[in-house]
Structure formats: structure tokens, C-alpha cells
Design a protein around this nucleic acid. Structure first.
Length: 233
DNA sequence: CCCTGATTCGC
DNA sequence: GCGAATCAGG
């Protein structure tokens, strides 16, 4: 048995999917791979999300030579599939298997789907489309707020055999911060004034609370930022 | 490189 | 039905 997609699991998948979480994110929360998430989502006919890749090529009707994997199939006896004309480019073969095309599923509660092409660079869906409802862990302003990072005790989802009143909100995706981003976690700024000889065990930085916008505390900033005039004494 | 979702197809 | 492998765009 490869995997047991229990109703509950499916429910959670749907839930997270609708929340606009990325497939990888969902996968992390469910302790499965993103592939599994995507695959299942498709099978379930969940509304497709705006994918980074555009499949416009289909419009041209140009043959899509992609699918290297499909090449394997190519080795197999391939019945010549003639296009048989197809006068209208927009017309699509009705005989084709009915794809799980969602019928107008745009009204989803997703703030992620932004058809806008506005130049607003604020667009950063790369991280994750965070609708307003879901947790928004990526809030970093330059405020001196100290945020305690949530820690993950156990990656495995706790089984909830009984009375699971919609536990879905697992907020605080603890997932290991490995993204290229979030390198700037300036939570506790400290005075960077060096004390001691670099290279010696005694060496350290002041560590006091720095002045706003300064790398040094008041005491050391006074030394660090000496007016040129004064310097010359 | 990292990320993203989509698709194919062996199992 | 499942999901790794692969693709493909950012």
C-alpha cells in the first residue's frame, strides 16, 4: 500500500490547498512530498493554481515535443495520431478524455490568484501565496519586535483518531528555514563594537543594545562616530 | 541555486 | 490510484 489517503488526509489537503499554500508547503505539513500533493490534487480535480509555467503553447497548436519521459512511450508502438484537420484552432477534440476541468472555480477564497499584471513588484508569490486568512510568518519589518521562532518538536503529524474538530490550522509552519530568503533575521541587534583581540577566545562584541539605526550602543557609538573635526583634536 | 506547479507513466 | 521523475518558468 503506497499511501493511504484517508478522508481526513484528503480533507486537510483540500483545506490547505484552498488556503493557497504551496504544494511543497502542504507536503511539509502533511509529511508527504509535493509531488504527492500535486498528484493527488489533480486526481481530486482541485482547482489548479496559477503555475509559474505558462502553458500558452497549446494555443498555437504547436506540437509540444516536451515530455522526455514521454519519449519512453515513444518507444512503444505509437499509433499515428493524426490531427485530422481540425479546422478551428480553438476547437478542441470533444472525443478527448474529459479532463477534470474545474468549471469556473475562480471564486475560490484565494487571494493568491492574481491575474493582474500590474507592475507592482510587491508580487512575491514565490515564497507562498499567503492569503490573509492563513498564517503570515513572513512578516519582517524593521521593528524591534522580538519574535520567537516556533519550534517543531516532531515532524510527524499527530494522528487524530478521535474528535478532530478541524485541526487544520497548524499555524507557524516551522519548516526548516532553508530558503534563500530570510537570511536577515535581525531579531536581537547587539552592539557590534569589538572588544579584545580578534582571534583570541576573549574576543567578543559589546553586545549591548545598539542605538536605533546604529550598529553600536550609545557608549560605543560615541567613540565610533567621532566627528572629523574632533578627531584631529 | 532556489523556488514554483504540471505532466507523464511505471508501479 | 499513487507519486517519483521530469519538465518548465521565475
Amino acid at each position: 500500500m503506497a499511501m493511504e489517503w484517508t478522508d481526513e488526509l484528503i480533507a486537510r489537503l483540500k483545506e490547505l490547498w484552498e488556503q493557497g499554500l504551496s504544494t511543497a508547503e502542504i507536503g511539509r505539513q502533511l509529511s508527504i512530498t509535493k509531488n504527492a500533493v500535486v498528484g493527488k490534487a489533480h486526481r481530486l480535480g482541485l482547482p489548479p493554481r496559477p503555475s509559474p509555467i505558462r502553458n500558452k503553447t497549446a494555443a498555437e497548436g504547436a506540437a509540444k515535443p516536451v515530455r522526455s519521459r514521454a519519449k519512453k512511450a515513444e518507444a512503444a508502438p505509437v499509433a499515428a495520431e493524426t490531427e485530422v484537420g481540425t479546422p478551428a484552432p480553438s476547437a478542441q477534440p470533444v472525443e478527448k478524455k474529459k479532463a477534470p476541468v474545474a468549471k469556473t472555480v475562480k471564486a475560490s477564497a484565494d487571494g493568491a490568484a492574481k491575474p493582474t499584471k500590474s507592475k507592482a513588484k510587491a508580487d512575491k508569490p514565490a515564497s507562498e501565496g499567503k492569503p490573509v486568512k492563513a498564517a503570515a510568518p513572513k512578516e519582517d519589518t524593521i521593528s524591534p519586535v522580538v519574535v520567537e521562532a516556533a519550534k517543531e518538536a516532531e515532524p510527524a503529524p499527530a494522528p487524530r483518531p478521535a474528535a478532530p474538530p478541524i485541526p487544520q490550522r497548524k499555524v507557524a509552519p516551522p519548516r526548516r528555514v532553508r530558503g534563500a530568503l530570510e537570511r536577515a533575521s535581525r531579531q536581537g541587534p547587539t552592539c557590534q563594537w569589538p572588544i579584545g583581540d580578534p582571534g583570541t577566545p576573549e574576543f567578543h562584541f559589546c553586545g549591548a543594545t545598539p542605538l536605533p539605526g546604529k550598529p553600536y550602543c550609545a557608549e560605543h557609538a560615541a567613540i565610533a562616530y567621532v566627528k572629523i573635526r574632533d578627531r584631529r583634536h
